[in-house]
Simulated assay, not measured.
Amino acid sequence: MIAICAVLLCCLEVTPAPSQSPPAPVLDRGEPITPIPPAPAVDPLKAALGERLFGDRRLSHDNSRSCQYCHDVATNGASQRRHDVDLDGVELALNTLTVFNSTLSFRFSWEGKFRTVEADIKASLESRHTMGSSAAEISAKLDADPDMRDRFVVAYGRRPDGRDVVDALASYQRTLLTPGGRFDRWLEGDDAALSAEELDGYRLFKSLGCSACHQGVNVGGNLFERHGIFHPLASPEPKILRVPSLRNVATTAPYFHDGSAPTLEDAVRKMALAQLNATLTDRQARALVAFLNSLTGTWRGAPVGGSP
């Protein structure tokens, strides 16, 4: 999703072992955005189990949907719909946020209600609007499956347990980082990674004030903001939203918390006017969209969403 509107250790100097080469220096361009790091080390057995659970419909009360239903990691980590629907077929109030890079943000959900990925997952499993289940119900279903029971014993040393279901899903979600985008390659020193228009778009992104809210490793996701500062924007509620990440934003249409902007250019123009009181020229809009396209990273060796 997109919301363009008006962050950062002391290191111990370690001498590498004789058989090792020292790490290559990382170029610091002094920019407000930093590259996505490699995925953190997680227990591979727990992450693999979490990936299996992510696509398991038994996590929903009526066995009708899995996490993948709203968070399609084969495309954009969210969905192509303006609003996903609840278990009764009623549209959800807010557009679905992508699961890619979500663990790099400081809070979870549009309103930032949850401080940890585990709390966010638990709430989704229990919410009557999404999965409508409970730890006891999910555990009983999985324990009745000999193969799944064996997988939990291997990964956790015990039979399926609600806490371990959440932990496995969280372990998997922490692997869903998408490094390697062209903008990240530019940040890391590859001057040929961006075109002249993309660089122009990035300069505009900073000079117009977009980077005041969209900065850091996730190009957003680390503060709250009121929308519609100068002009109305999208649905008036909720008034205060967690600024979403712009990582892979070119793949996550439609945009805004209500999904009311069908294209990235439409979203950029509306956000500039509503949040910055700026009316973009056609050239400015094209340049900003070009820059935002460069934020598309890779997942398992391929660009997210298959975009260039």
Rank of each mutant, 00 (worst) to 15 (best):
N76C: 09
R286W: 08
G301K: 13
L8Q: 08
R82N: 03
G221E: 03
D143R: 14
S127N: 10
G89E: 04
D164A: 02
S60A: 11
D258W: 15
Q173T: 07
D184C: 03
D200E: 12
A170K: 12
L177G: 09
N222P: 00
G201R: 04
S124N: 14
T281W: 07
E237K: 08
T279R: 15
V99P: 10
P244T: 01
A234L: 03
N248W: 14
F183N: 01
Y255K: 07
G301L: 11
T15G: 00
R300I: 04
P44N: 03
W299C: 01
P37E: 02
P232E: 01
E137N: 04
T130M: 09
L94Y: 14
I229D: 01
L280H: 11
V166K: 11
V85Y: 13
L59W: 11
N222E: 04
D56E: 04
L292M: 12
L59M: 13
H257L: 09
R159N: 05
I240P: 12
L199F: 12
A192P: 08
L53T: 07
L94W: 12
E111K: 15
G157Q: 07
G112M: 09
A253V: 03
S109E: 08
T96E: 05
L94K: 12
P44D: 03
P303E: 04
G55C: 04
I2F: 08
A135R: 14
S207K: 06
R159K: 14
L233G: 03
W186S: 03
E225Q: 14
E126S: 05
E91N: 11
E265R: 11
I36E: 05
R107W: 11
S124V: 15
R82C: 00
R174L: 01
H257W: 15
E237W: 13
F183D: 00
R65G: 01
L142E: 02
L142I: 04
R82P: 01
D147G: 00
V268A: 10
R185K: 15
V85F: 13
S127Y: 04
C11D: 04
G216D: 01
I229V: 15
K206Q: 15
T75A: 06
L187Q: 08
A278P: 05
I36R: 05
R159Y: 06
V304N: 02
R226G: 07
T96N: 05
A144T: 14
L246A: 08
A17T: 13
S235Q: 04
T296C: 04
S294K: 10
P303N: 05
F224I: 01
F205S: 08
N222W: 14
L204W: 12
R115N: 11
N95F: 07
K46C: 00
G180V: 09
V26W: 01
G55L: 04
D164W: 09
L94I: 03
F230D: 00
D282E: 10
P35E: 02
R128V: 14
V217T: 14
R65P: 00
R269H: 08
A93R: 14
D145F: 06
V289D: 01
A47G: 15
G180F: 10
G89D: 02
S134E: 02
C11G: 11
H257S: 06
G162T: 02
L177F: 13
V217L: 02
L45N: 10
S134A: 01
G301Q: 10
P22N: 14
F230I: 03
V26Q: 10
A78C: 02
L125V: 11
A267M: 06
C67P: 02
K122M: 09
I121H: 10
L280V: 11
